[in-house]
Design a protein around this nucleic acid. Structure first.
Lengths: 203, 203
DNA sequence: GGCAGCCTCCGTACCAGTACGTATTTTTTA
DNA sequence: TAAAAAATACGTACTGGTACGGAGGCTGCC
């Protein structure tokens, strides 16, 4: 029903060719297998059986050149993020007009991404969490020197190598290393690296 | 000059109070030190001396409650990403209208983020790279057992502990560990953990 | 049946990191 | 300027990972 609706909706757009359609996940995968010309897969996130996210992931895994455009009623952050993580290239709300939908398809086909305005808002709102949020980080901060040492550790330098690099004694490096382990409450370099990554001190 | 222009521009917005102004980075930091009531710092990315990104970082480090709104002529991805990474909460182009600028200030003051439309586009375009890009990951896959071992290593288990946990010999764990190091091309457990995190095998 | 890949196990040797204690100099902060 | 924090440095001892080489059993596939 919905599939047919979209088909009718896009009929006037003469540059868009609907080459196939399917009613659930497995069917979609089967269709893709026999239709090498598909460039964009437009799919309803809320489908029977296999979830839209799973299907997205499956498509991306088997046909990396097929761009996935997701159609959904909701735009909460968790869902949108999941779709992106699964490899979705666009996310359009079901309230979108024909004009918006066709624009989205063209954008996605062209290698770009497309997000409905509300979806984009959601994403940007959450960039805050990813990159710009005030982090109430109330643990003992690492000193400048310690952070520096940590950089080298993360690059798999040995204590001796670090010492030579910084023109200090190996013993000093050992001490810094000990303090790092204590401050990050890790038993070994393993926890240290995880701490560093979590706190975006490296990579 | 620019500072004065913005001041005049925002004068009609009666709910916004300009409590201080500065002409370069160090001056801004000094002003902040003496003005505890500042909630939003509006700064030109292209300033003399200290770069806007540096100033952003400095502000976030010393006054985590001050929200930084950046004003810039450009919106290339590298620059925007840098600002975000430094802790900026918003990014407005200099072509913005008074209405947009005041909206941005209010959004940022309210704990949200704000990005001019073009900037938002740039960001969304690059989400593709962050989250939806096809990753040609053509390295030897880890076996089930190896992944299992890796989980324990990430949790800071020693070889002996892993052995006991899995009812196998410590030697076997050592061998798996060696194979893991080889497959991930890392010199030590340091690289191993980074590999695991990058490939979402842990945490 | 044979081959490949995985999981299992052993020994020897070495080195790097870790634990713990102590102490001086330099820099920052109160 | 005194106190606190950071950076510097040393010694001893021990543990745990790493390098290297070898080997047998099991499963699944051609």
């Amino acid at each position: 029903m919905i599939v047919e609706g979209i088909r009718q909706m896009l009929r006037p757009e003469t540059d868009l060719h609907i080459v196939a359609q399917a009613h659930d996940g497995p069917q979609a995968l089967a269709v893709l297998a026999s239709q090498p010309s598909v460039r964009v897969a437009l799919l309803d996130l809320n489908m029977p059986g296999m979830s839209g996210v799973e299907l997205t992931r499956a498509i991306r895994a088997d046909w990396p050149d097929v761009r996935v455009l997701v159609l959904s009623m909701f735009h909460d952050h968790a869902t949108v993020a999941e779709v992106l993580e699964a490899g979705g290239a666009g996310y359009v709300l079901k309230t979108a007009s024909r004009a918006e939908l066709s624009t989205a398809i063209r954008q996605v086909a062209g290698g770009n991404t497309y997000f409905s305005a509300e979806v984009a808002d959601t994403l940007l709102q959450n960039l805050q969490i990813l990159a710009a949020s005030p982090q109430p980080d109330q643990r003992p901060a690492l000193t400048r020197r310690e952070q520096e040492i940590l950089q080298f550790i993360a690059r798999e330098y040995s204590n001796l190598q670090i010492a030579e690099e910084l023109f200090i004694s190996e013993r000093t490096v050992e001490t810094h290393r000990r303090n790092l382990l204590a401050k990050t409450e890790s038993k070994s370099v393993v926890g240290l690296i995880q701490y560093a990554i979590r706190h975006k001190l490296i990579s």
